[in-house]
């Protein structure tokens, strides 16, 4: 499988702490990649580097364009990664625009296209046909994702008033409205009940199969990881300790040690 993104010897230091320590990995195109690892392994830091919130201390993050050229994302400013590289993410602690309705949230995600259509508010102020069409299209895209994620009923409800599991879905719908090429989900199953968790699995698979998206997600819920991912990367202490198909990773002794702790550590505890 060809990679969409290559992370190359990435290092992220905060003061004296090295959160990511020479990490290299590839995100295969059109597949679902899971990143797992104990708390503090550097998973979310990796996301923050990937989506431009942190500027890495060293290393490169390469995006492989469709025409075969490469682009180093560490040089792009934060908001331009979503805009130009079309890498969009969700957050571990949901970040919706709580006072705004679900539909509004989804329209904010299409800010670029709409702003261009509104000629930086000028055409919008004049209410030109061109802008009206762009707005209709934006609402149509939102409507499609709302329908696909079963959120149509909540379209006009303030996002902050929805139950937790629904908010998670709204955040994914919002990210999808930004037309991502790579969708990064930070613990999408956290706090979901079993039914919602099953729906999530179906959704992730559908996004890959029906929409051809590349997905990268951080998850602690092993049933989700093992069921849907094509490729699993295991991190610990800022490094990659294993990678491969879920079955192989599950049996990897290094991984088992990272999760269950060292034998002698256990002995020391006892």
């Amino acid at each position: 499988m060809t990679p969409l993104v290559t992370v190359d010897h990435l290092v992220m230091r905060f003061g004296g702490i090295t959160a990511i320590d020479g990490l290299s990995l590839q995100v295969p195109r059109g597949a679902i990649t899971a990143i797992i690892g104990p708390n503090g392994a550097g998973k979310t830091t990796l996301f923050n580097c990937l989506t431009g919130f942190y500027r890495p201390s060293a290393g490169r993050i390469l995006l492989h364009e469709d025409d075969g050229s490469e682009r180093d994302l560490t040089r792009l400013k934060g908001h331009r990664i979503a805009r130009e590289a079309r890498i969009v993410r969700t957050f571990q602690n949901i970040r919706l625009f709580g006072g705004m309705t679900v539909l509004e949230n989804l329209l904010v995600a299409q800010h670029q296209a709409l702003t261009r259509a509104s000629r930086f508010a000028l055409a919008g102020l004049l209410h030109t046909p061109g802008y009206r069409r762009a707005e209709r299209e934006a609402i149509e895209l939102a409507r499609r994702w709302l329908a696909e994620l079963g959120l149509t009923a909540f379209a006009d409800t303030p996002a902050g008033a929805l139950p937790y599991g629904t908010q998670r879905r709204v955040e994914i719908a919002r990210a999808l409205c930004a037309r991502p090429r790579l969708l990064c989900l930070d613990e999408p199953a956290a706090g979901l009940n079993p039914r919602e968790s099953a729906e999530l699995k179906a959704l992730l698979t559908a996004l890959r199969d029906a929409h051809g998206l590349t997905l990268l997600f951080i998850e602690h819920d092993m049933s989700v990881v093992m069921n849907v991912s094509d490729h699993v990367v295991v991190m610990n202490f800022g490094r990659k300790i294993a990678e491969g198909p879920p079955e192989a990773v599950r049996r990897d002794p290094e991984v088992i040690r990272a999760y269950l702790g060292e034998e002698d550590e256990e002995a020391a505890d006892a």
């Binding site: 905060f14 003061g15 979310t44 923050n48 919130f53 942190y54 957050f91």
Partner: peptide
Amino acid sequence: GKPDVEKV
């Protein structure tokens, strides 16, 4: 001062 890292 120390650099202020934005918490995400």
